[in-house]
Design a protein around this nucleic acid. Structure first.
Lengths: 346, 346
DNA sequence: CCGGCAGTGGGTAACGTTTTTCAAATGTGT
DNA sequence: ACACATTTGAAAAACGTTACCCACTGCCGG
């Protein structure tokens, strides 16, 4: 007869120990697959655990040892691209016996600090931060308290690992694709960045840089034309409006993110122009909706799943050996050509 | 000079107590705004906390008292509708001094059980479960261990609170809108449900029921036509294919969810038909992409934000008074008419 | 026969909080 | 001045787990 202890009704390690007639230490060892438990002991304890329905209390574990859970902070739940990352990470982590808890979409450094601190307070064994906007200083602070992996940001640090998309070549993929189709006036909508750290580290800045480099490489220097707004639907709308008002209207717009492209499409439609007939549009991220039939947006796939699984492996790695040197991965993106940049049959 | 204790480098309540020259009890009282701390004491302690940068350790707190964090389980990170719920909930909870941690998208009961158990193991003070598919039995089990609010499911229980959309009238909104436009052969694509509990409780089943009721109310009984697939893009694609193959093709399709509508639009385009000229399409959820210019999908708004904030208030309420009777809220949806059901100018 | 060693198992002290209990100090009414 | 309530603060006991250390059993080589 299972008799869970005291107030809470929760089955504790002590209950299991009594039921199996062994010490709590023994139970702990079995639960953690630690050294020093004979096969018979293991069998006895496992039986008791099953009979009583025991589950280790994560909060209590956090006080002494590991918690077997990993925190994932994501900047924006709405961007389905991040969902791919989560999927990839979750799969690897759950297979390794870790639980995943996510911090809610955060805008701005204050909110991010709040989320990261919460994860540390909950004794998470590691954290994966997706496209954080916090200062390097804060990231290093976090990395000092807990094994940390940064996803989708180019800065390198010796205190945390990172996984990022090669945004430079991703932008080149788009420019070359459009140039190959015969476009010369290829404009770009970027997310304006002022923080000097961000200009070097953030994907949006790198994409804008990649756009410029690729344009020059194709000898299209004089057609370089950038609208600086934000990576939002509205930013795309306003950016496209700016570009359409130019003396020399572009024939193609490379939006820095799919959501930006959606805003651009709206502005283009309002201006009475057709896509891709009058103007071609490309995005970035291969978001779920880019593939929808009415949208069919040309875009760049960042292999989010793979980014997530790589990040997960890195964090597990670092939990195992906290002192190993930091490693920084860069993943190659691929172009997904769809209707918004198609050549129309005549 | 802040001298954080021992191994971990973390500033503990003991450090604060020493620095402020009071007992740890006093610090604890101040941190929790508990009774029995004089104003001078509060000032002294707060000063020490600020100087040392102390943060309560959530895991340790979980062992005795509250953890000041709430777990939110969401079924699918990809559905942006859930993001609205999260936003609404997060806002209320953070204002109340609670932190939010989310369980990753879960498919199926096993995965859901895993997430809910993890939240309990982490000593969360409450949980909000969004559109769970678990059995009633499991939900009640969770509710027995921790204050629980179920969002988007119609079942009522005395052990947990709930917030749901009035899917019955939502479906009626769509049917009436289409009927008012002159449509008679209005078909529906539903998510097939077999579990008897689900047929009563799940939104998809209630929407299908609402469709039938509304059709009858408009004396369109003979035109009731349902394709049973799933609430996915592919389900919408297949469902629309089935409906288009009917002897009497429908002139309007009410998809049970926006994502289903997207699949339907693809099938319709493939069949060489135009929207809304040949066939009208409506969805449900007012997902972000429903508003995109190339999509412009008529849909039903569930006031996700409000659902989230209501759920948050309910869970806070129940934390405060665990024994109060369960309350069950139902929120009225609104129709958002867009181009996919527009009457074309002739 | 003794010392060392590998393999098992357990006792006990943390870990950082909150809750409970208790004592001292302070006020309050006769 | 005395009994009595109220406020203020602290010491100590949880909470559930793991890390650290020690004890015991055989076994082996010397």
């Amino acid at each position: 007869m299972p008799k869970p202890s005291a107030r809470t009704g929760r089955v504790t390690i002590v209950d299991v120990a009594q039921h199996a007639e062994v010490s709590t230490t023994a139970v702990s060892k079995v639960v953690r697959n630690a050294y020093g438990a004979s096969p018979e002991m293991q069998a006895k304890v496992r039986k008791a655990i099953a009979e009583l329905g025991y589950r280790p209390h994560a909060a209590a574990r956090g006080l002494r040892g590991q918690t077997y859970s990993i925190g994932v902070m994501l900047p924006n739940i709405r961007n389905p691209f991040f969902a791919d990352i989560i999927d990839g990470a979750t799969e690897v982590l759950e297979d390794a016996g870790y639980q995943v808890l996510m911090g809610p979409g955060c805008n701005g450094e204050a909110e991010e600090a709040r989320v990261t601190e919460t994860m540390i307070d909950h004794s998470m064994d590691g954290v994966i931060l997706i496209a954080p906007v916090s200062s390097r200083q804060h990231l290093e602070h976090v990395a000092r308290s807990v094994p940390t992996v940064i996803v989708g940001r180019h800065g390198r640090s010796s205190s945390y690992d990172s996984v990022a998309d090669d945004d430079l070549s991703g932008a080149a993929l788009v420019v070359n694709h459009l140039a190959d189709l015969g476009h010369r006036r290829i404009a770009h909508i970027e997310h304006l960045e002022t923080d000097p750290d961000h200009i070097v580290e953030m994907p949006n800045a790198v994409r804008a840089d990649g756009y410029r480099q690729a344009m020059r490489a194709r000898r299209l220097d004089e057609h370089i034309d950038v609208a600086s707004t934000t990576y939002t639907q509205e930013g795309g709308y306003l950016g496209a409006q700016q570009l359409l008002a130019r003396l020399h209207q572009p024939t193609a717009i490379f939006a820095g993110a799919d959501i930006v492209a959606m805003g651009a499409l709206e502005a283009i439609a309002e201006a009475g122009l057709t896509v891709p007939g009058d103007i071609a549009v490309a995005g970035y991220d291969n978001t779920m909706f880019a593939g929808f039939a009415p949208v069919s947006l040309t875009t760049v796939d960042q292999r989010g799943r793979q980014m997530g699984s790589t990040a997960a492996r890195l964090v597990l790695d670092r939990i195992a050996q906290p002192r190993r040197p930091a490693s920084h991965m860069k993943l190659a993106p691929t172009l997904i050509a769809r209707r918004t940049t198609a050549v129309l049959p005549h």
